[in-house]
Nucleic acid binder design. Structure first.
Lengths: 334, 334
DNA sequence: CTGAAAGCGCTTACAG
DNA sequence: CTGAAAGCGCTTACAG
């Protein structure tokens, strides 16, 4: 039952395979009688054109492929929901390709996906490639939109991270807090570097010397450190400092969740601001820097579809501004 | 650059396409010199075999496809991380296909995926099909493993939901609590029905009359009701009852998060137990019924790969037992 | 309105 | 060790 082809249908319906093909593709100008006959046979034999044969013959797959290193992280999930919502407006199927995030050959995997021509267009989420790699991607000349990353030669949608950090830091500084810690994740990643840089920059602007001891990450590097456990470990380290911080800025909400648990266990409380504004943050009272993740996914999808339809204009760089959301985690208690 | 084919390589390297194909496929018995020449040209032209052409010619795609209705939910995310971890042991690529969850034509979408022969094997997560539909799927005779669903004719991995509900209810009952509410999600779904049934059954066993007012869901049905917002709304309804409950069992942890916020806002606190044990639950002190989501994903993947390799044994039904995890949300306060 | 035929870009016996 | 040729299952001008 799983294996009937266009030939089986043609034979059983007494027509040519061209006719079967036309019927399945809803082409104009088929005699009603023929159409019905073919449809009936197709239904009986459970026939549906094979994706691979069709893709090859058509040179068009009707597929948008999302490429992502870490499937199971919250940021991705929310971006994805935006993609899902938007794509339902078009006649494209969604395919997600999960690349192994083991550093060195990651770019090779990415290139192979493009070379193998899996889809008509691609959405790269948080791949965090280096500039020379992005330059190479540009030369493939294939519809591609970057999310959570930006590069002048390729369509991209991202958030101004510096601005986000600035908002968090300035909020703390305005409260008179000076000893501000930063919980980072994987420091060697591109966004990791950028965020630490932004943190230091704000301190310098306020004439506060940078204390490297206040920049910590947990030891558990699952999901590049974007996990509750990592934040939990990081906060314990901070609390155990001889000179602990008065406030904390955290690279992600999910780490902040862990950090808050650590504080509760130790009976301390310092104001903390996360990063992302995942849905749950609103429910647990976590102050955070909001990234419009859902919108980013939707915008990227819309942009990609337009790009697939006409390739006239040059690359589009959409940069969202983040927003500081204050909730109970930044209230000063006691 | 994106578009070179095996013909281009063959021509430039001065060999036949058969030879190029053999080199790309690392076949034995190619002169070292030829191999190097071909590889060099392939690299220069950025060549990699097209997935669709290769899949058609080989009748094997090296793809495992995950089919899922709601991508962005926590249960799925955790199952997925198990799938990811396990699949990295094999030479299969992972593809996720997101079907639109609009009820009636959902099964049609599922059938089409199979008919179109996207992959070598499939993992269906939480598709919650009806028995007559599963029966039909069985007839496709294609490697397929169900997750979060079970059916005698098809490989499946699931959790004994009745048992989970029983554990939660018996815990409450043992504490002397009798007025126990249930926050459900989409009631018309298969698991929705089952869980409500289980809840009622436990009450009956304890000779407690079922009060339909105590079975509530929020009004927001995004993600089938498995959202913080839904739980929040549901708990408000419960609190506003003339005769509010003394304890609450909740269909998912994520709803419990919302329910807890509702309680905080209204200054009430009743013991609450969630369902799933998503990672975050441990960090916010939520008591819950643990489903081994990561293991389920890993087991299903392993099972599917074995099924693809030899089709000897009959269908395997793996049923995990859930586990009651007690944390602070069930502590009796004041 | 329908069919014969070429083509999409690969793989793989079959010869040599 | 390598090539010519058939085949995978479709689509789509081109004729009629």
């Amino acid at each position: 039952m799983a294996g009937s082809t266009i030939y089986d249908i043609a034979k059983k319906a007494g027509v040519s395979i061209a006719t079967v093909s036309r019927v399945m593709n809803k082409s104009e100008g088929i005699a009603d009688k023929t159409r019905k006959k073919v449809l009936k046979v197709a239904d009986e034999l459970g026939y549906h054109p094979q994706a691979y044969a069709q893709g090859l013959a058509r040179k068009k797959k009707n597929i948008i492929m999302v490429v992502v290193p870490v499937l199971s992280n919250y940021f991705f999930m929310e971006v994805l929901s935006g993609i899902q919502d938007e794509i339902s407006n078009y006649d494209y199927d969604l395919n997600i390709f999960n690349i192994q995030n083991d550093g060195n050959n990651m770019f090779e995997q990415v290139e192979n996906i493009l070379k193998r021509q899996w889809a008509d267009g691609y959405l790269f989420i948080s791949t965090h490639l280096r500039d020379h790699q992005l330059e190479k991607l540009e030369s493939y000349d294939v519809p591609l939109t970057l999310v959570d990353e930006d590069y002048s030669g390729i369509d991209s949608v991202s958030v101004d991270n510096q601005q986000g950090i600035q908002q968090a830091m300035q909020y703390f500084l305005a409260q008179g807090l000076r000893r501000i810690a930063m919980i980072s994740a994987l420091k060697s990643s591109k966004p990791g570097e950028e965020r630490i840089e932004g943190y230091k920059k704000e301190l310098r602007k306020a004439d506060i010397p940078v204390d490297e001891n206040l920049i910590v990450a947990g030891d558990s590097m699952y999901r590049d450190g974007f996990s509750e456990q990592n934040g939990y470990e990081a906060m314990l380290k901070l609390i155990d400092l001889k000179n602990p911080p008065e406030a904390c800025f955290c690279s992600s909400d999910i780490q902040a969740v862990g950090a808050i648990k650590a504080m509760k266990e130790r009976g301390v409380h310092i104001p903390i601001i996360g990063y992302d504004d995942i849905t749950i943050s609103n429910y647990i009272g976590l102050s955070t820097i909001r990234q419009p993740m859902h919108d980013m996914g939707a915008f990227a999808t819309k942009n990609l579809v337009e790009r697939m339809q006409n390739k006239k204009e040059g690359p589009i760089q959409k940069i969202y501004s983040p927003e500081l959301i204050l909730r109970s985690s930044t209230e000063i208690r006691d």
